[in-house]
Structures are given as structure tokens and as C-alpha cells.
Design a protein around this nucleic acid. Sequence first.
DNA 1: GGCAAGCCGTACCGTACGTTACGGTTCGCC
DNA 2: GGCGAACCGTAACGTACGGTACGGCTTGCC
Lengths: 217, 217
Amino acid sequence: MLQASADIDTSATLTERQKAVLDAALRLLVEEGDNLTMTAVARRASCSKETLYKWFGDRDGLLTATVQWQASKVRVVPVDGEKLDLASLTASLEGFASDWLKVISSDTSIALNRVAVGHAGSGKDDLGAIVLENGRFALARRLKPVLLAGKQAGLLDFADAETAFRSFFGLVARDVQIRLLLGDRLELTEAAIGGDAVRATQQFLALFGAKTGPQGL
Amino acid sequence: MLQASADIDTSATLTERQKAVLDAALRLLVEEGDNLTMTAVARRASCSKETLYKWFGDRDGLLTATVQWQASKVRVVPVDGEKLDLASLTASLEGFASDWLKVISSDTSIALNRVAVGHAGSGKDDLGAIVLENGRFALARRLKPVLLAGKQAGLLDFADAETAFRSFFGLVARDVQIRLLLGDRLELTEAAIGGDAVRATQQFLALFGAKTGPQGL
DNA sequence: GGCAAGCCGTACCGTACGTTACGGTTCGCC
DNA sequence: GGCGAACCGTAACGTACGGTACGGCTTGCC
């Protein structure tokens, strides 16, 4: 909720070389978790520690820069809420669901969430806030317009978009993220994700679909 | 899923003094997160480091013992699935929901999940498995009999108890746990938890309630 | 060519912390 | 009272790692 400004165009101020270094740090983070060392990053990125400190100031600085760099890579196009019928709404929801499942089950997301959760305990940096802002809250920002358009079109019925979103979120994610973060092996094949997406969407529509149906017909 | 034996009667083999030490470690874990030091635990528990190492072998040993000790404290009575009508089923589900919300929003649960998530990255110990086993999987084991009884009584309709459970889980927890783990301030008052519990239960019944109603009447 | 800036590689320093060692004290037992 | 075991408090050791310093190399500019 803070970070509203901190996540804008950090990529603009980064040189190509710096991006490459952050990519290396990211890969290392996925492999090693939070116990990566500055020397390891330097070696992997073929740069000197002095450079790391000059550019990012600090180990925490490097970590936050890495997280922000990854966040900036997944910036997505906002869906346009035109031409809304039940089919397109369903398709849109299914798309959101399967995208989200793909994200939270990806190696990089798991690694990033792990370090952010770990750091959230002792409030040295705002990794948790950044991840939250670019994950769950970004999803809400993108999904709510769709929900509101669905309500406008008489396809959905809810009092509060936030509440509706959180129920959708729960139906999609269920126990997947916490299990993955805690190290549970959980095979999420493309097919399983697709199936979960349609199931979650159907359940959501069953709960929040307008009783009257599209009233215009 | 492993840990099936590792969580039984660890408390039986512990002396009172050892339990006190683990309680101290637990309190410290809540306050300091994963960056607690052996010296701090020793000081807080008024014991010597030598004793810590003799009893728990290792820092990781102390951590796992602490987590298991906390897990052993929340062992609960299995609900009996007799006298099942819609009212009692609803009450039971609401009870599970509010209990679960209370657990995952408690300070100790947050702290324990944080360290477990952190350690799940580099597989030194099985903290993640332990937490999972005594958290999400324990909940499933307790809830599934209720669900099956509800199905038996014609109140619920589902093909697979696991799938039904996971939907219930999602409707109850939604984004609460991940937000709390990532450091989001999230006021969960007693009243809010109660409200969420009935909402989640209603949604679950709307999705999985038998279309026919209790047919025996 | 000369020079300055940026960067690589590496050696170095300081410190925090896990782990071990040891002297002193209590307590149960003979 | 004497003895051994368990334990407390603390000092000491080893090491890993964050952070800094420095010498050499490239690159672009004059």
C-alpha cells in the first residue's frame, strides 16, 4: 500500500549491465534462497563486489532492487472491459485464474515470496510490501474493473468489489501458495491449472452470478 | 506428508524444564523472527548454551523442537459426527472456519510459518513439512469426517472430500495468510472473524449443499 | 599517446554468531 | 560429609560473510 511510487519505472534508470546483474541475482535467489552471498552474486554476474555496493549500496538494497526488477518485468496490459457477455466474462475470469496460478507456482515467485516473508519479520526493508503490491494488490487492481463491468452488465451481483475479489482469490488459490511456500511438492501441470481455473470461475459465478441472468434477453 | 510419526508424543519425552526452555525459545521466535541467537535463547531461558546443545544438538534441532513443541500444544479433540442436521453442520463449519482464522492470524502462527517458509528454501530441516502437517493437513483430517458425515446425511453433495475441503479452505482463508506473512497489517477483530466464518460457511453451502435438501423429511 | 573513469578480481578487515570448553554451584544419593 | 551428575555463566575459538581497499585492465575522450 505504501510503495505506490517505488515500483514505477525503476527499470528506466537501470543500464543494461545492471539489469543483467539483477537477472543473475534473481537466478541465484531462485537457486539458493535467502542465503545467497554477495560474493556469489558477484561471481555469477561476473562483476566485482565493489560495483555491487556502488550500485545498490547494500545487501538489502540489492535484494529490493532484484525484487523490483522482477516486478517490473511482469507488468501487464490492462484488459479492456468492452463487449461484455457471459462468455467473454467467463473467459476473462478463467484467464485471470490460470495466470495467477501460473505465477504463484513459478519458481521465481516462490523464491521471491520466500525471501519477502522471511524479511517481513524483522522490518529492515519493505520486501513484503513490494511483493504484496506487485502481486496480490496488482491482481486486484486489474481484476476489479472486470468485476465492476460484469456488475454493470447485469452479469454479476455483489455489494463490494473488494469482497467479491477476495472470494475469487480464495477460490483460485486455495491452499496452493502456502503449500508451495512451505516446500510441499505440488505438481501443477498446465492441464491441472486449466481445470482449476474453470472450476474456480464456475464456483465464483455460482456465488456471484446475477440471479436474473443477463436481463436484456 | 512425511512427518506422520515425527509429531507424536514429542511432548512425552520432554522434561518440564525443557518445555520451559522451548517456551522461552518460542516467545523469542515470535519477537525476533528467525534471527534469534543461541545466546539470546540461553539468556531468556536462564540456561547455559552447553545445555541447549546437549539437549537439542544444534540450532536447527532447537528450532524444530520448538516448532514441534508448539504443534503438540494445539492438539485438539476430534469432533464427533453424530446428530447431524443442517444447523449443527453449519455451526460445525463455522466453528472450524473461525478457529482456523484465529490460528493463522495469531502471532505465534505467523512467526512459525515465517521461519518455516524461510527454511523451506534450503532443505536443511523439515520445518515446512512439520508446520504443514500440523496446520493445513491436520485441519483437513479433522474436517473431512464432518464433510463426509454431511454427505452421508444428504446435506452435502460432492465427489471428492479433498476437493471440497480445499474449496472450503480457500473460502475461509482467502488472502489472509499470505498478506499477514508478507507483513501486511490486517486487523482481524473477533467480530470480523465471526463474520468471515459465517460468510465462508454460507458460500460453501451454496456451492456444495445438496440440491435436494435433507431428503429424509 | 596520455589520461581519467568505470569496472573486474582479489585480498583484506571487522564482526556476529554457532559451537566448544571450562570453572563454579546446586542437588540427589551413599 | 563426600561424590558425581547435571547445569549455569562465561570465556574462547573458528568461520562465514558483509563491507572496504587496492592494483590492473579496458574504453572513450582530449
